[in-house]
Design a protein around this nucleic acid. Sequence first.
RNA 1: CGAGGGAUUCCCGAGUGGCUAAAGGGGGCGGACUGUAAAUCCGGUAGCUCAGCUUUCGAUGGUUCGAAUCCAUCUCCCUCGA
Length: 305
Amino acid sequence: MSENNTVYIIAGPTAVGKSQIAYELAQRIDGEIINCDSIQLYNYMDIGSAKPSKQEIMTVPHHLYSIVDPDYNMTVATYQKLALAVIDDVLSRGKVPIICGGTGLYLNSLLYDMDFARNQGNLERRLELEQMAEENDNEYMHHYLAAIDPDAAERIHPNNLRKIIRAIEVYECGYSIKSLSECPINPKYDFKFFSFVMSKQYLYERINNRVVSLIENGLEDEVRSLLNMGYDSSTPALKGIGYKEMIEYIEGRVTLEEAITNIMTNTRHYAKRQLTWLNRYGFDIRFEITPEDNLDSKLNFILNN
RNA sequence: CGAGGGAUUCCCGAGUGGCUAAAGGGGGCGGACUGUAAAUCCGGUAGCUCAGCUUUCGAUGGUUCGAAUCCAUCUCCCUCGA
């Protein structure tokens, strides 16, 4: 319908207020929001993952929120496929896609022309390799990788078992793990990539407040009901921040107080990793939010860039 | 009041005469990252004019060539007994 291929991206660390910005932006530019948060993809995990409210979801179309159950084996490749399809669908209807979320790798899968189809891997083989890693040490596994795929081995730290195993798995499927630097930007879209950051002090204050409100909003009940559904700490999604700590509390291994401080600490760590990740881009349009900024100042910034 | 135990770097916690600015963990700080990514992993972390010097192991004084480690006194904490 239109040859406009503009895709907005609202990125930033957890708790900077991305969802709200995306929501307001969508209303101004007739946009539709596409989730780029690995945990918000899951059903029944609304409070802990701080999903947009039902009210917001009813007002503006939100895509890829609550689309799989907590035990679903999600991967970037799947996410990429789903998200690209949604982007194209939104564009085809003449609306503006607004990607919102803080999962860096998932964001990369849209921003860059990453071809996951060629790097498949093999789950069964992965289990064998994990077994092999248990019987040997990290160094052994790293040597093993170095023998077959020296380039990958050079890029992966000897202690990063998970990545070593993945690289071996991929190599045995006839491919090689690539480095992001080999990947061009996805030429199909015209990205307007905004990242919102904050001073550590301000961000951490917001994180702490948010954790308190998650608890007040019923995080414990949400986690209990997930456990009642049969999910447990081994379920992939329940390893998310807020969930794993609450499970420890519910199982009596820590006090509520401890669980809360653990959630705060882990969220801060996560936010720091996100900030580090964002620094890699260099082509994002960055807005440093201060306590004095209101929604309008953020929106005007986006609309004027 | 009597008998024991303890005070260690931001926190927890090893260390019982030199190899100790002090293990390990946590936190804080920085970083990496193409199929679990809210994951996984890495590096620093007393100060300085930084291969050298200065300050640090409750406080003060002592023994010793040399002390977080031994001795004395003091302060605070814990346990048991009155």
